[in-house]
């Protein structure tokens, strides 16, 4: 528990800043719903004038801005999943790599703690923070919807999206964690983390807008929690299975490789 505790303390400020910023941003965007979107405004007609591929990219082909979940899915969710993933990857990829980069790993591994234990505790550290991030952001969003929207909405679909998004965040975190076993230089880790999320986002847009590139939906985690998909057709079993496989593979690889790795600092 020693390493876990240390990493929680060390990263709590990062966690608080990211979580507070994203939660506040979501709440703020949702509080504007009745004034900018919703019935009685003409934003939906306006949105329909955009080119088709543009509307597909933002899920406007399947979601309506006149509806609170449609508004949430197209305007707010993308921000949660994009920034949330960046937060998750930056956090998870820093935990092991920072020890090597700052050469403190030599200290840590000279303690009576196995590498497997170190990996496990760091895994828990970022998992805990990613889960907490999700709980705070989604609860805040839900509360904001209840407060700014008087009509009915499908709460089950909202929470389904919350669940899938959280799983995608964890997937990104696990991939970043695996990556940080190989890449340990600070700056490279940072750009790698950012690159991973942005490429995944680009692939999602490609999968959504082009029929030929439709197969990419199996490749990019971003798509597995696509707002338009989950809000219109619920949780996909296929995506869940792929996600499970990807995460299992990433974690097994992380344990195996890190346990055999030469630590040269």
């Amino acid at each position: 528990m020693n390493v876990l505790r240390r990493d929680l303390v060390r990263n709590r400020r990062t966690f608080l800043i990211w979580t507070a910023s994203i939660a506040l941003l979501s709440v703020w965007l949702l509080s504007m719903y009745s004034s900018v979107a919703g019935p009685g405004t003409n934003i939906q007609q306006y949105a329909e004038q955009f080119p088709e591929s543009f509307r597909k990219a933002f899920g406007l082909d399947r979601l309506s801005l006149n509806d609170i979940l449609g508004y949430f899915g197209t305007e707010v969710h993308i921000m949660i999943i994009l920034f949330g993933s960046i937060f998750a990857v930056l956090l998870s990829s820093s935990l092991l790599s920072r020890e090597e980069n700052e050469k403190t790993i030599e200290f840590l591994l000279a303690r009576p703690v196995s590498r497997r234990q170190v990996v496990t505790e760091k895994l828990w550290a970022y998992t805990a923070y990613v889960l907490l991030f999700s709980v705070v952001v989604w609860t805040a969003s839900y509360t904001a919807i209840l407060m700014s929207y008087e009509g009915e909405f499908d709460a089950a679909r909202f929470w389904a999206l919350a669940l899938m998004t959280t799983l995608v965040l964890l997937t990104f975190a696990n991939l970043g964690f695996l990556g940080s076993v190989f890449i340990t230089r600070n700056r490279t880790v940072f750009s790698g983390a950012l690159g991973l999320v942005l490429v995944a986002y680009a692939l999602q847009i490609a999968a959504d807008t082009s029929d030929k590139l439709g197969f990419l939906k199996y490749v990019t985690p971003m798509k597995w929690a696509g707002a338009a998909d989950v809000l219109t057709s619920g949780i996909s079993g296929t995506y869940l299975v792929i996600m499970l496989a990807v995460n299992a593979a990433a974690l097994v690889a992380t344990y195996v490789i890190y346990s055999r790795k030469d630590i040269l600092v």
């Binding site: 240390r6 060390r10 700052e102």
Partner: peptide, 29 residues
């Protein structure tokens, strides 16, 4: 892991967590 319970190690180049105080590091260790 068992070995390390009985071994004290001083690396050639000493690197510790910059955000800690001396006391914190000794407590952590």
């Amino acid at each position: 892991t068992e070995i390390k319970r009985q071994v004290g190690y001083l690396p050639g180049e000493v690197n510790y967590y910059g955000d800690m105080r001396v006391r914190d590091l000794l407590e952590y260790s």
